[in-house]
Simulated scan of single mutants.
Amino acid sequence: MPAPSGPASPPSAAKSEGAFRTIGEVSRDTGLPQHILRYWETRFPTLRPLTRAGGRRYYRAEDVALVRRIDQLLNRQGYTVRGVQQLLSGEGADVPPVAQEQALGVRLRAIRDLLARALHDDGV
């Protein structure tokens, strides 16, 4: 019978809701790579986990909630980083999502038409 490899770290789900989480735990819980979480800290000023000695990050429950919100907006709803920044800062809070989607559709159609004209002009 093989010997146990050492004490297993408890899954972050075993922690209480208010407990701090390391970047590794947040990464594992959200499925987001750690480098993305660190990048988001540079792009979203409201995402500021506590840092302790050695630069180790500790995410509070509200930090984890913000990470999930940013992930939802960027990776599932299709917002750009700039768009999420505006939403989080309140600049875009009064614009309903339907209007934002319509505006995006208009911009995408304009880009499509531009590309089609460029291809046509080049004889492709």
Rank of each mutant, 00 (worst) to 15 (best):
P97H: 01
T42N: 07
E41R: 01
S89N: 05
L88D: 00
P45S: 15
L88I: 00
R56E: 10
R21G: 08
E62F: 03
K15C: 06
K15F: 00
E91N: 05
A53M: 15
R82N: 15
R48Q: 09
E62K: 09
A99E: 07
G54Q: 08
G18N: 03
Y39I: 02
E91A: 11
F44E: 01
Q77V: 15
P45D: 12
A14P: 13
V95H: 05
G92H: 13
A65V: 14
P33I: 12
T80F: 04
L74G: 04
D63Y: 00
D94K: 15
L47S: 02
F44W: 05
K15H: 10
A65M: 13
A53N: 13
R57M: 09
A14N: 09
A61W: 07
R82T: 14
P97A: 09
L37W: 00
K15S: 03
Q86R: 13
P96R: 09
H35T: 15
R38Q: 00
A19R: 01
N75F: 15
G18H: 04
R69F: 11
A65Y: 08
L32P: 05
A99T: 11
E41Q: 02
R82Y: 10
I23T: 07
R69W: 14
L73I: 11
D63H: 03
R82L: 14
E17P: 11
V95E: 12
V95I: 06
N75H: 15
R76D: 14
L87N: 05
L32A: 12
A53S: 06
F20I: 00
G24W: 07
I36S: 15
E25F: 02
R21I: 08
A65F: 13
L74M: 10
T42E: 00
E62S: 03
Y79P: 05
P96F: 08
L87E: 10
I23C: 04
D71M: 04
R21Q: 11
R57S: 04
D94P: 15
T42V: 06
P49T: 05
V67W: 05
V64A: 01
L73G: 00
Y58H: 07
T46A: 15
G92F: 07
R56I: 06
E91L: 10
I23L: 02
W40C: 01
E62W: 06
Q100P: 10
D29W: 01
L32Q: 12
R43Q: 12
